[in-house]
Design a protein around this nucleic acid. Structure first.
Length: 288
DNA sequence: GTCCTGGGGGTCCTTACGTCA
DNA sequence: TTTGACGTAAGGACCCCCAGG
């Protein structure tokens, strides 16, 4: 009995594209009020002293964006003019990111964030989460530019977007682990059952062998053959020469061995190899 | 070409907080 | 009203990769 993934009624998409609807079983979007600027109908009760903690401060960020657009994104150590390529591009982006990050942290200072060192829980709005999910469906990792763009679009700090994606990947992996665990459990159950069946069959054969009638009813022994490679002795087709209990063995021609014809008969018909590990587990994670 | 170093981004583990039954 | 379970945002440690010196 072969087990396919479809037999497990998996709710997870196994492709790199993750299904939002099936993966986020616990997302309580509909239970959460929306406080973001995207939904202006509601008053943000989670804001601290009039500041919505789910938002990066717009004015501060606009300042930083002005700085960026004003040509500021030169590297702080002013080495970008001599350097080029990926590194330079990344430095440039990260500088932009730092500007936004700094503005965000300025907007939500320690004082505003509780002031006593305690963390305040920041809930993303339904709309923000939906956009993040959509983005995650396309890419489960973000490059700095994508991160900054998404943060700007959602009015969040890049760090928040980054954390969301990290946690989202972790949730996906956890879910996948659960699915894999279930798959392996099924495999184990099937192998156990198969083992039980084979043990029973073996017992029956042994009982038959001990019975004198077994020999009476046995067909004339077939020719014993031995594989020159594995030295396994097995019986070939019945009705050939030889008598009961004959120890005469013929060597399987190498050509026959190469075709594995005699090995095929060794494998019980109903037996089908079951992969111990889903193949998709062995695909290495993609790095950006 | 090789080694060292620093930065960025990833995972993993953990904590703190919000929500709900 | 209290409490425990659960989900999730966020912090921190650690690792890997890569570019530059």
């Amino acid at each position: 009995m072969m087990i396919g993934k479809e037999d497990l009624a998996l709710s997870l998409s196994l492709s790199p594209t993750i299904s939002t609807a099936t993966n986020c079983r616990s997302h309580q979007f509909n239970l959460m009020p929306s406080f973001s600027s995207l939904d202006t109908r509601t008053t943000p009760p989670r804001s601290l002293r009039g500041i919505d903690m789910n938002q990066a401060p717009v004015t501060e960020r606009e300042d930083s964006e002005e700085d960026m657009h004003a040509g500021v994104p030169s590297s702080p150590n002013s080495t970008n003019s001599s350097s080029s390529g990926k590194r330079n591009e990344r430095d440039q982006v990260t500088f932009e990111e730092r500007m936004i990050e700094r503005a965000g942290s300025r907007g939500m200072s320690d004082e505003e964030d509780g002031g006593d060192g305690s963390r305040k829980k920041l809930r993303l709005s339904k709309d923000q989460s939906a956009v993040l999910e959509e983005s995650f469906k396309e890419h489960n990792t973000l490059n700095p530019k994508q991160k900054a763009a998404l943060a700007q679009r959602l009015n969040l700090r890049p760090r928040q977007v980054e954390v969301w994606f990290q946690n989202r990947r972790a949730r996906t992996k956890l879910k996948q682990t659960e699915v894999d665990c279930e798959f392996l459990k099924r495999c184990c159950e099937n192998l156990t059952e198969e083992n039980r069946r084979l043990q029973k069959e073996l017992q029956e054969l042994r009982a038959l062998k001990l019975s004198p009638q077994f020999y009476m009813q046995m067909n004339p022994p077939t020719t014993l053959t031995m594989c020159p490679s594995c030295e396994r002795v097995s019986s070939s087709s019945a009705g050939n020469s030889g008598s009961a209990g004959s120890s005469a063995a013929t060597v399987v021609p190498p050509s026959m061995h190469q075709t594995y014809q005699h090995h095929r008969s060794i494998v019980p018909a109903p037996w089908t190899p079951i992969p111990l590990r889903p193949a998709f587990l062995d695909t290495p994670p993609q790095r950006s």
